[in-house]
Design a binder for these strands. Structure first.
Lengths: 160, 160
DNA sequence: TATATACCCATGATATCCCATAAAAACCCA
DNA sequence: TGGGTTTTTATGGGATATCATGGGTATATA
């Protein structure tokens, strides 16, 4: 199972090319010829994933009973708005300029792993988002060991 | 089950490498190729764990019905903020410089066992934190023998 | 002709691998 | 029990491979 972990900041050169982090390329597998990129629904950022993952998403959507307008929204935003970007021989993609500017990406891109997918951020926007997320986590007193403990007790009581 | 116990202070060399304590490596098992490190949500320190433990966390997240914003928060904070660091042939990891500095780690790292996980501290910050934690424990009148006694009586009454 | 896209090679920085050494711990055997 | 020996650990440094990045050139596209 490919897992996207950690974050990396890479430069966009004047041709609009940027290296996809080597570990992400490894997670995509040796056969991957590129990635899929589309605007995030929640953030001022881009979502990226493998082509197979997008197909999986498509299948999942069919299973769900979504409201028609929701379905409509997702169809146009994700599938309509997504683009396929191939790797060059060095593992770079060329990010369309208009797509980059819509999310505030200038000459640097932060690749952020999110397990099954990853995101592309403007590093400054990411830093702000990260700081906000951290203070929210502290405010709600979230701890990982708690989460694991909760899930474990749920597993015990719930069966399996 | 791997258990991380006790603490060790090791030096960071100028390449940014530091030995993971042998007993921690033993706890990780012979097959472990590295560890996962991310910023602690609670402390000015790094959390470290095995890759399997992170996968456990990942599964836990899927099991729990977390609020979407919470799920969101954890995904970016933990998975985006974590890095996978492989061992070199001597059992060292190379700690990214920016990650070390964000938690105040200079040229020494204190590895602190916390059972299922461990933490990486700047030794001075750890000493300060320790002192604070001890006085807090005294203030709350916590004692280990009390805790054990309480647990024992609970077992008797509650069965098994 | 301009603009964009793909393919090729060059280079510096970083990370990884491999070997050396010194200190500490474990071991062994009288 | 004590002293010597072996093994494990932590640490350092040089050589090598990988990666991100830059630029040149050809090929397509409008």
């Amino acid at each position: 199972m490919p897992v996207f972990l950690s974050s990396f900041v890479n430069r966009l050169d004047k041709k609009g090319r940027v290296s996809v982090p080597a570990s992400f390329r490894a997670a995509l597998g040796p056969d991957a010829t590129g990635i899929v990129v589309f605007r995030s629904l929640q953030h001022e950022a881009l979502d990226g994933c493998s082509i197979t993952h997008l197909e999986l998403l498509s299948q999942s959507l069919e299973k769900l009973d979504l409201a028609p307008d929701m379905y409509e929204l997702i169809e146009t935003t994700i599938f309509g708005g997504s683009i396929q970007v191939p790797f060059d021989s060095e593992g770079r993609i060329s990010l369309p300029h208009n797509l980059a500017t819509t999310v505030g990406i200038g000459d640097e891109v932060a690749f952020v792993g999110r397990r099954k997918t990853f995101q592309l951020w403007d590093p400054k926007k990411l830093a702000a988002h990260d700081a906000a997320a951290r203070s929210a986590a502290r405010a709600k007193d979230i701890s990982l060991s708690k989460i694991i403990a909760q899930a474990a007790s749920k597993l015990e009581s719930g069966g399996l």
